Simulated scan of single mutants.
Amino acid sequence: MMISYLLGKQIAAMLLMVFMGFAIVRMKLLSAQDSRVLSAVALYIICPCMMLDAYQLDCTPERMQGLMLSLAAAAFALGIGIVINLLIKEPLALDPVEQTSALYSNSGNLIIPIVVYVFGQEWVLYTTGFLVMQTILFWTHCSTVLQQNPKISLLRILTNINMLAVFLGAAMFLLDMRLPEVPALAVHAVGVMIGPLCMIVTGMLIGSMDFGRFRQYRKLPLIVALRLIFYPLVTLVAFRLSGMSGWVENGETIIMISFFAASAPVASSITQMAHIYGRDAEYASVINVVSTLLCVFSMPVMAWLFQI
């Protein structure tokens, strides 16, 4: 019950942030086009700071083992998801926005506050396994799917600021290094902005919509069902059959954290990336908001299924 209650509170807070973005567009203080600049700020400044900040912890053998388990769980879940996406995209006629929305979850700003409150601040490290793996896939698989004319460049991927933040953060963790106090304060303050800013950008896009057009998105229920029900259930079965929770001490809790990340609604970053790559960002934001609304019901059910 505690986990379900915290999920409900966090989701309600996120929806209020969406409403803020919606309101400033409806009041004509800003336009939906202004959200493109905010999207770039979120992807190229705030996301790297969030990743770097997550690794500012002491490196111990127990944390190292747990982190490796969380990375393995994320790679396992997302790998299965990508394979399923490849198998269903043609039979279901999924476009790039639908493919990426069904696969990638809001595993950061929704899950981290819940983990802090339920398990404690030190457990946030194990949310980074999913975040790191998803960040890598955002700038490889996801960006390739969303680009109109994708040209994959390994050098460009590895030198992307988000990837550099992952590499630097991981290196500092392994070497037991810390940022100096002043830069650390700045990185932390910027990193925690990711949730509110992404939700506000989504609200700004929603604020410019003609709600009568919702009817034209005929596959909206399908995409939301894939994200909130189908992929989480597949992940749950895969985790149970793998026996991964017995690999390390406290493995059950670490796998639970990874499962929560896999059960979250559509990643807010899909909207920003669709915006930047010229895809239908309005459709992406509709999927994001509807999945966020409905996860009030789906995530507590998934949490219960994990624990039985």
Rank of each mutant, 00 (worst) to 15 (best):
F211C: 13
Q65A: 15
I194P: 09
Q272H: 14
M20K: 00
T235E: 07
E252A: 13
D34N: 14
M2L: 14
D280F: 12
L205H: 15
M193C: 15
I194S: 14
M133K: 04
A238W: 10
A262L: 11
V115L: 02
Q216C: 15
M17F: 15
T202P: 11
V83I: 13
F230V: 14
L92T: 05
A225M: 14
R227V: 05
K89Q: 08
A102Q: 03
C59P: 07
P183I: 12
A303M: 03
V187G: 10
V224P: 06
P91F: 09
S242G: 09
A303D: 03
N288G: 13
T253H: 10
W123Q: 07
A170P: 08
K9I: 09
T292R: 03
V290S: 03
T127H: 05
I45P: 01
F173S: 08
A189E: 14
L164S: 00
I136L: 04
V248M: 05
Q147D: 11
A72N: 06
L158M: 06
F119C: 03
A75R: 07
C49H: 04
I194L: 15
G79H: 04
L92H: 00
R279P: 00
S298F: 09
F260A: 01
L94K: 00
A12P: 02
L241I: 12
A165T: 01
C295N: 04
L87I: 11
M302G: 00
M27P: 07
F260I: 04
G66E: 02
A171W: 07
A274E: 02
L7S: 10
M204A: 12
A303W: 04
A238K: 07
L293E: 05
G79P: 01
N162M: 01
T60N: 09
L174T: 08
L15F: 13
I82G: 04
V187R: 08
I136C: 01
V296N: 11
I229M: 09
A171V: 09
H188M: 13
L228T: 07
L197E: 10
T159F: 07
V182G: 12
N106T: 02
Q121D: 13
I84A: 02
F19K: 00
I287H: 06
Q307P: 06
S107P: 07
P180A: 11
S245L: 14
M244Q: 08
